[in-house]
Every structure is written in C-alpha cells, then in structure tokens.
Design a protein around this nucleic acid. Structure first.
Length: 319
DNA sequence: GCGTCCAGGTCTACC
DNA sequence: GGTAGACCTGGACGC
C-alpha cells in the first residue's frame, strides 16, 4: 500500500453539455478507470498511473450539465514537479473528455430513430479515456469467452493480488498493475491464482510486449488515425478485432455475442439465431448506419438499454 | 449428484 | 487467404 499525501488541485471547465454524474459513473456500471474506484456522495475516488507515477484522484462536480465545472484533486507520493503538474491537467482533460464537443454527434442522433431517445435520456454524457493501455488490455482479455460474472471475478483477483493500492483522502483504491509487476510472473502461477485459464499466458505476454518499450501510450494512440491505432493494438498478443475496439474504441463498433443480440433486435427486430455468426454482419450494419459516430452510438445505446426497451417496445437483454 | 454445454475471442495448424 | 478446432473455468441445465 502506498500512502499519498502531496495534493494538487485543478478546476476543469468542460464543454457543455457535460453531465458529471453520467460521465464518471456510467448508467451501465462501466468504471471510469479501475474496477475498485469508489463513488459516494457525488464524489469519485479512483487511482491510476500517470507518467509512471501512482496518482490518487478525487473528482467532485462544481456545476451542472449546462455550466459544468469539475474540482479535481490529484494526490501523489512526492511533490509533483511543474512539468508533471501540466501533464496531470492535460491528462485529466483528455481522460474525462472535457474538450469533446457533443454537437456533431447529437445533430446526427436527432435524425436517427434509435439514438434520438438515448440523447434525451443521457444528455451530457461524455466518453472517457483510460490512460493505461495495459489496464484496458487486461479488461479486454478478461472479457473474452467468459460470462460477465466470471470476467469480473478474474479482474477483481488481478487487482487484489497485483494492483497497486493507493491510500489518500481517507480512501483506499487500487490501480491496475503495471506491466513490470505482471511480467515477473509465470503464466501458470497467474492462471492458478486468479483462475484465468488460457488468458494468463496472454496477459503475461501483453505485459512483456508493453514492457519492451516502443509501444505507443494511450495518448499517442489517440493522436493516430483511428484505423492505424487499431492496427497497432492488434499487433499485441491476445488483442484481436474485438479487444482492440475495447482498448481504443474510436474507430470501432465492438460487437460481441452479447451485443449482437441487442443490436440484432434494434436493426432487424429480432435476435439473430446464431449470435456468434452474426457478429460481422451486425458490425458492418452499425458502421454503415452511423459511420464515424459508430462508437458513440454503441456507447450511448449500451448505457440506455432499460429506457430504450421501454420506449421502443423491444426487450433488450440487460447484463 | 453427475455429465454436458457454452460463454461479451484469439490464435494456429491445416488446407 | 480462409477456416475449423483448441483453449480455462464455472454456472446453468437436464437427467
């Protein structure tokens, strides 16, 4: 456990509309940065690595959806140098999507028979971007070929055994493990301890690949053309078409067996008979229909299944 | 209680 | 280049 005491605070002014609650705590339960983060009384406490340093982060809203303000307190082990402070602010803005303009997506969504409901339900929800390629890749690998409960159990074990625990502002939160921590493990040990099965070897190979250096950071991936970023990610062991869309979803429409059922109903009025076989067809239809907004469309729909089920009169299967 | 099936994919050997 | 089959584990299901 690492005790963090050096605080620096930032006031962020996101582009409106920006709903703090919907953005940091997604309705479908997606985490902002790590599975162990805490959301209480309108404040989110989380932990992550920025520039290789463990950072505890507390976020509180200081405004509302139409005139948003976020009070961010970053807590580190040692006093951050000025360049790190600048990086912290820039990273926070990138990760929280504060400069993202929802206008283009909303203009398209208003003309779409499915999306027009979601933008009413989730007005001001922004996409967020974890800083950590390795953490996102672990998440993607744990989602492969497993029911969601088992994926959650695998991730919880990885966090509990190998994640770095930060204590700050009266909270304890674990950040995703660093590649260096996992690369020291034998795959057989990781498989046995966390019941990862064949995924253990992939996660250790991922750690080694990222540890070698030279792989772009999440920030650098975000600056690449989306298709190029995806190709780069698919060079990593264990990361295929679906997982690349999970790690860096800008270019993607991450259809899997679960979402093939949901989008099959939305597009064609019924679940596909063979969801696995229908994945590529449904993915192509999503990209044809929503083009450069495919990921945002997927994101908004995935967070709004309950409301959409009611409004469209279609039972969309929830997690 | 026991056996079987399969799940929010990826990789590889084989053709 | 296209594609079947293997891959861990554990919950659900049928008997």
């Amino acid at each position: 456990m690492v005790r963090l005491t050096r605080r620096c605070t930032f006031i962020l002014r996101p582009k409106a509309p920006y709903s703090f609650e919907l953005t940091v705590r997604k309705p479908a339960g997606w985490n902002l940065f790590t599975p162990s983060e805490i959301y209480e009384g309108g404040a989110l406490s989380t932990a992550l690595h920025i520039d290789g340093r463990l950072v505890g982060l507390k976020l509180v809203s200081g405004g509302d959806t139409d005139s948003p303000r976020i009070l961010a307190t970053a807590v580190l082990e040692r006093e951050p140098e000025p360049s790190l402070k600048r990086n912290l602010r820039r990273s926070l803005e990138d990760m929280l999507g504060t400069n993202e303009d929802l206008g283009g997506f909303y203009a398209m969504a208003r003309r779409d028979s499915i999306l027009r409901h979601t933008i009413d339900d989730l007005r001001g929800m922004h996409d967020t971007h974890p800083s950590d390629v390795f953490g996102s890749a672990i998440l993607a690998v744990c989602l492969q070929m497993a029911p969601i409960k088992r994926s959650e159990a695998m991730m919880a074990c990885i966090m509990a055994r190998y994640g770095e625990e930060a204590e700050f502002e009266g909270e304890r939160v674990r950040a995703w493990p660093l590649p260096g921590t996992i690369s020291r493990l034998m795959p057989e040990e990781l498989a046995r301890v966390c019941r990862l099965g064949y995924r253990a070897r992939r996660i250790v190979e991922l750690a080694n690949a990222l540890l070698d250096g030279g792989f772009p950071t999440m920030e650098e991936l975000a600056r690449l053309p989306p298709e190029e970023a995806k190709e780069k990610l698919m060079e990593l062991p264990g990361i295929g078409n679906y997982s690349a869309d999970i790690v860096s979803p800008k270019a993607g429409f991450p259809i899997d067996v679960w979402s093939a059922d949901v989008f099959g109903k939305l597009f064609y009025g019924k679940e596909p008979e063979d969801a696995r076989a229908a994945v590529e067809t449904i993915k192509a239809e999503g990209i044809r229909r929503w083009g450069k907004w495919s990921w945002m469309a997927f994101f908004y729909i995935a967070q709004d299944l309950e409301n959409l089920s009611r409004k469209l009169g279609v039972q969309l299967r929830l997690q």
